[in-house]
Design a protein around this nucleic acid. Structure first.
Lengths: 148, 148
DNA sequence: TATAATGGTTACAAATATATAACTATTGTT
DNA sequence: AACAATAGTTATATATTTGTAACCATTATA
């Protein structure tokens, strides 16, 4: 019973994934020099605040050496900064800069412009439904998928 | 007004994208030899039936040479086959094999097993909400994002 | 028939992602 | 003090993705 519901959910998520990939990751690269990985890191920082290198890796299930590469590039571009941890000198915390935050928002706005050209095809009721459905999905997925 | 709603939707989609990436694309690689790109192609074929090489590229916004590489690999593994088009001999149509369809479903089932370990944290009401929200999102996104 | 356009492949280069091991510095434990 | 464990980096190799140009076969058009 719930088994079927879980399979249905998995099926829906599998269908949504390539659509988001196509309408988010792809247009991204024509708009900025930020890579998808860099965008994921900035999204985590925006959403959860300052994070250590290891925390970022856990958030995104990425190996630490990859995080180092991504963060190095984001630092070169002035989007994030390193902070030494006062309690544990092994730890390096990363946070968004003002420029990083502003550019991140700009990119999202730019993406919503692209999306808007598609969304105008929806009537008010569908727009409302998509707004509510995406909001609900975001909340539930964050609650179960974004830990550890 | 609707401007704000569009931005909200974009924000939600941007938040959902990395969660799906983490819980779908990543676990995929430990379970199969199929690459994310190959999975996207098989998903398109499952959803839309036989497609030409160019059609697949349009579906996924991928350049044709990349499709050739992905399809070559899927053929090596016996997941898809090429068909000559009887009307236009330039066109090569691709379809899933029985093995491709079965393995694709198996992988999705395997992914839903992984997901299920997370979804048990939800109560019946949340499960129902996620089921409905993902269903609605899938329908609307497909209707506006999967053309051309 | 000559030409342009289309569908697909091949070849190549560059960027990005993945994975592993080795290494330094620091901390925690005995 | 000796040791193991943790956080992060460096180095290296490989896989995947992205992008471009050139090419062949076929079809459409002038």
């Amino acid at each position: 019973m719930t088994k079927l519901k879980v399979d249905l959910i998995a099926d829906n998520l599998m269908a949504i994934h390539p659509l988001l990939y196509k309408s988010i990751s792809k247009p991204l690269r024509s708009k900025t020099s930020i890579t998808p990985g860099g965008m994921f890191v900035m999204d985590s920082l925006k959403r959860r605040g300052m994070l250590s290198m290891s925390d970022i890796g856990k958030c995104l299930s990425m190996p630490k050496p990859h995080i180092t590469v991504i963060v190095d590039k984001l630092i070169d571009e002035g989007y994030v900064v390193r902070h030494n941890d006062s309690n544990d000198r092994r730890i390096i915390n990363i946070s968004l800069t003002d420029k990083g935050l502003i550019d991140f928002e700009d990119i999202k706005k730019s993406l919503s412009e692209t999306l808007k050209s598609k969304l105008v095809l929806l009537n008010d009721q569908e727009l409302e439904q998509l707004s509510e459905a995406s909001q609900k999905m975001k909340e539930i997925l964050i609650s179960i998928l974004s830990r550890e």
